[in-house]
Design a binder for these strands. Structure first.
Length: 346
DNA sequence: AAGGCGGGGAA
DNA sequence: TTCCCAGCCTT
């Protein structure tokens, strides 16, 4: 058997039963692919179920508010995916007459849909011969063919895409694409793959050369910046507080948080007291505050480590935009914030 | 071409 | 801890 046949045969035996494999509806395929970008199946699965239940059609998604979509997306990360999901749903409903694009070229035009996702939808939903190259495919191909070109270099991206295009099965592109990805996820794992039980062991270059553990080659590491966040948790006598939408570009765009003051370092109570709150909506003369966490809560993102303090501030009254503490959980918020809300006894 | 963008799973 | 995950967008 050749490479393709072995992969597809392995897939027919070992594949997981997943809900998006039970449909050819492009809306559901698209939804699953967006959710699964940089996200493991285990983490994305409950979100897929929730979205299918709450938004059974693309018209439901298009008619929803961005806030409600972000709320359902809460905890999944990379929130631009949710914002683009909503934008594209509206675009398809309003500009494309509700007709989902049915080929790679047109799918690629959609916001939030890049080369991988366009290929995945085109092949899985429409059986177009379009090769997918995701993290799994990079790993399988680099090892099987012994390719050490960095997968995140422009040359590597071109090289692996070209190779994948020559390999894809023209008779069953949908099955082939899913087979090689599933193979990478389950058999040709990043760490400690079970090569002794691998159907490709006889012809795998990396196994022969003992380079399984160094392939695929990936350039550089991301530089992590440290930031210091001070969240102001106001409380008035009507059990209200201030909760704001993040408007600026950057992390957590369009999610909600307590008023935030960023500082150069972790603040003591004395240093916090000296702040002049000029950037907040509230002018405070006499602060009655306490610190929720003596030790910084460190929230780690890919590129940022957020050292966080929550300052609890009792005030007489709050501006009219204050919301009831009970309603906090209705708003989409970062995990860092929602965990505080869950643990703090208001 | 390089950097920004989340959060969790796995070893 | 570190690496990785059915990547994409902006600069």
């Amino acid at each position: 058997m050749d490479f393709n046949s072995k992969l597809i045969n392995w897939y027919s035996i070992k594949k997981r039963e997943l809900p998006w494999r039970e449909t050819r509806n492009p809306y559901y395929i698209w939804l699953s692919e967006i959710i699964l970008q940089q996200t493991q199946v285990k983490q994305g699965l409950p979100y897929y179920d929730a979205f299918v239940t709450q938004y059974p059609t693309i018209f439901d998604l298009a008619n929803a508010s961005e806030t409600s979509i972000l709320k359902l997306w809460q905890g999944l990360g990379y929130y631009s995916r949710a914002r683009n999901l909503h934008f594209t749903a509206k675009h398809i409903v309003n500009e494309l007459d509700g007709e989902f694009p049915d080929n790679y070229k047109d799918l690629l035009k959609l916001k939030g849909v890049g080369d991988y996702t366009a290929s995945a939808i085109a092949s899985i939903a429409f059986n177009e011969v379009a090769a997918v190259v995701d993290g799994n495919v990079y790993r399988v191909l680099s090892r099987y063919f012994g390719i050490d070109t960095p997968i995140n270099s422009s040359l590597g991206i071109k090289e692996f895409k070209l190779l994948a295009s020559t390999l894809i099965d023209h008779k069953q592109p949908a099955t082939y694409n899913q087979a090689i990805m599933e193979f990478g996820a389950i058999q040709c794992k990043p760490k400690n793959p079970d090569c002794s039980a691998c159907p490709l062991q006889d012809s795998c270059v990396a196994l022969k050369n003992q380079t399984i553990d160094v392939l695929p080659v990936k350039l550089k590491k991301t530089k992590v910046t440290v930031k210091y966040f001070n969240f102001l948790v106001f409380m008035d006598h009507h059990k209200k507080t201030l909760f704001e939408k993040r408007i600026e570009k950057g992390i957590w765009q369009h999610l909600y948080q307590f008023p935030l003051i960023e500082s150069e370092k972790s603040l003591t109570a004395e240093e916090f007291h000296l702040l002049n709150f000029k950037d907040t909506v509230l002018k405070i003369e006499h602060l009655d505050y306490s610190l929720y966490n003596e030790v910084d809560i460190v929230h780690k993102l890919s590129h940022q480590h957020l050292h966080t303090k929550f300052w609890i501030i009792d005030v007489e009254s709050l501006p009219k935009e204050a919301i009831s503490i009970k309603s906090l959980t209705k708003y989409p918020s970062p995990v860092l914030i929602s965990e505080f809300i869950d643990h703090f006894s208001f």
